[in-house]
Each structure stands twice: as structure tokens, then as C-alpha cells.
């Protein structure tokens, strides 16, 4: 904020040199390399993607036609679009809800002075650093129809084997589960940091007033954890909506399109179905959905923080 005032004073007091000073004082050459990198790899391709979404380009040919909003009407009437959007929302919102609830419970437990708390924290956190692709394979060994660890247990108890990854009603939730398992450690750490910043005197005062542990949790812990909840919500929603690797390794998006997310669907459209124009249109929809949801989460929880 100080920098803002100084540069304002400068520009006001020396109006005639205003443009020159603000140009030099921006030191724009220092961020030029960074700006060039994101322009080439993100901004230009993104804008180009908007253009491609109005064409019937197949992804490799030199010629293509502009087709107006045809890809957009196709997208809106394509039942696959809504299936994939629904899956993506389940991945995004489902993972967010589970990671926050379980992450909070873990943090509350490990915030107590009990044995093994450091070791438990390490073990819960470990999957965060492992590639999501590998994490998918690891759980594949657990859920696989033939020779999976889950079916070994079911057979042992004389039950029917289940084809968990091939069942479209079930495999979506297995993907949510694996994503939650992998990243619940981040939510836990953020909640632990939040819990440790709450002063003990709040609880002492509440105990004098005779508040039950549940009342203390509801009226002290939860409101004061709102900043941690906001952060967790936003990063988990964005991460969940972009889910890609773990779907590839667990189900490959199948059976059919049953467990595709928008990311894997776009990948299929572009590489397997040579439908680049349509892939770009789906990309625009994905960007819009991520933008709306992350903004909504941010605004909603920021407001909660102020009220709390």
C-alpha cells in the first residue's frame, strides 16, 4: 500500500513527467519473460481455443470451416455433455465435501495430545506427494474384478465378487474416494494450522460458562476455522473439477463414457475421435463452469468469514 501512495504522489507532483516516470517505475522489463511464457503457453492458446470452438477442425488438417454456433448447439443437445458435466460436478463437489469433513475430523483428533499423532499425520499426508496416476493404479489393485484385494475378501466371506470399476453407478464414487484418500492430507494440515491458531482462552472462558464440548465446537472452533474452510473449499473444488490422471488409471473414463470427466472427455475428443473443434467447445464450457464455481465458493465463504 505504501508503494501505491508514493507513486501517486510522484505522478501528482510532477505531472509533466507523469508518463515517463510511471513507465520507468513499472520496471516492466523485469516481468517480461514471465509474461511471454504465459502468453505463449496459456493466453494465446486459450484465445485460439475460443476461435477453434467455432470451427469443425479435426485437429490435424490444414483446412477447416467456420460453423458459427453449430458446435455449441451440438454440445447443448449432446447427452454425453450432461453426463460428463454431472460426473465432473460429482468429482469436484463430492471430493470437496469429503475432504473437508474427513480432513477436519482428522485434524481435531491429531490436535489432541495422543500417541502416534506425528506418525499418523505422516501416513495420512504421504499420498499427497505420489503421482495421482500411480495412486490410481495402486487402488486398481484393490478394486480390480479379477484378483483385486476387495474381491478376495468378499470371496472369503462367501459373497459374490463385484465389478466395482466396471459399474457406472459405483466407479464414479470410487474415483471420488481415491481422490479424497489421496488429498485429504492437505485439508488436514490446513485445518491443523487453523486449530493451532485459535487461542486457548476462548475455550477456558466457555468452560467457565458451562458450555458442552459440542457447543464449544459449534460456537468457537467452527466460526474461527472459516478461513481454513474457505481455502480448502476453493482448492479442492478446482482440483476436483480438473480431475484427469486418476480417472485414466482407474477406469479410463469407461465403461463407455460413464466415468469421463470434462478433462478426459476433451482428451478423447481430440486424440481418439479427431473432433478438435468440438473438444475446444467443451473446453470453453469447462472454463466457464470452473470460473463460476470457484468464484461462488470464494464469495460465499468470504462472506461467512466476515459474519463470523
Amino acid at each position: 500500500m505504501n508503494g501505491l501512495e508514493t507513486s501517486k504522489n510522484l505522478t501528482v507532483s510532477k505531472k509533466e513527467r507523469k508518463s515517463k516516470i510511471s513507465k520507468n517505475s513499472s520496471l516492466w522489463w523485469m516481468y517480461l519473460p514471465a509474461l511471454l511464457a504465459v502468453s505463449f503457453f496459456i493466453i494465446y492458446p486459450f484465445l485460439n481455443g475460443l476461435k477453434i470452438s467455432f470451427t469443425n477442425w479435426n485437429g490435424f488438417s490444414q483446412s477447416y470451416d467456420y460453423v458459427g454456433f453449430k458446435q455449441y448447439t451440438r454440445m447443448l443437445t449432446d447427452p454425453d455433455t450432461w453426463l460428463v458435466v454431472k460426473n465432473t460436478l460429482i468429482y469436484g463437489i463430492g471430493s470437496t465435501v469429503f475432504q473437508n469433513i474427513i480432513g477436519l475430523l482428522y485434524a481435531l483428533l491429531l490436535n489432541q495430545s495422543i500417541r502416534f499423532k506425528a506418525l499418523t499425520r505422516t501416513i495420512v499426508y504421504l499420498p499427497v506427494i505420489i503421482s495421482p496416476l500411480i495412486m490410481g493404479y495402486i487402488w486398481y489393485f484393490f478394486f480390480a474384478f479379477n484378483g483385486g484385494a476387495l474381491n478376495d475378501v468378499l470371496v472369503l466371506f462367501g459373497l459374490e465378487k463385484i465389478n466395482a470399476l466396471g459399474n457406472p453407478d459405483l466407479n464414479i464414487w470410487i474415483i471420488v474416494f481415491v481422490n479424497t484418500y489421496q488429498f485429504v492430507g492437505i485439508a488436514m494440515i490446513i485445518f491443523l494450522a487453523g486449530l493451532q491458531s485459535i487461542g486457548r482462552d476462548f475455550y477456558e472462558a466457555a468452560q467457565i460458562d458451562g458450555a458442552t464440548p459440542f457447543q464449544q465446537f459449534k460456537n468457537i472452533t467452527l466460526p474461527l476455522l472459516m478461513p481454513s474452510i474457505t481455502i480448502n473449499m476453493v482448492i479442492n473444488i478446482i482440483g476436483g473439477l480438473k480431475l484427469f490422471d486418476v480417472i485414466i488409471s482407474l477406469t479410463g473414463g469407461g465403461p463407455g463414457n460413464a466415468s469421463q470427466s470434462m478433462s478426459t472427455f476433451m482428451y478423447d475428443l481430440y486424440f481418439l475421435r479427431q473432433d478438435a473443434g468440438y473438444a475446444a467447445t467443451q473446453g470453453v464450457l469447462m472454463a466457464v463452469i470452473i470460473l463460476i464455481l470457484s468464484l461462488a465458493a470464494l464469495i460465499y465463504f468470504k462472506r461467512q468469514e466476515v459474519e463470523a
Binding site: S7, W28, I42, P45, K242, S263, A279
Partner: peptide, 26 residues
């Protein structure tokens, strides 16, 4: 904190929301 720099900073932050695959296809 010049006008230009504030704009560039906002631009960098806005880029964080773009899903990587949206840019990857083009």
C-alpha cells in the same frame, strides 16, 4: 503499484482459473 503493474498482476491471477486442458488442445 502502477496502473500497468496492477493490471499485469490481475492478469497473472486470472490465468490461474483457466483449466490446463482448455489451452492444451490449441
Amino acid at each position: 503499484q502502477t496502473k500497468l503493474n496492477k493490471f499485469i498482476f490481475t492478469l497473472f491471477i486470472a490465468i490461474m482459473v483457466i483449466p490446463p486442458l482448455t489451452a492444451l488442445v490449441p
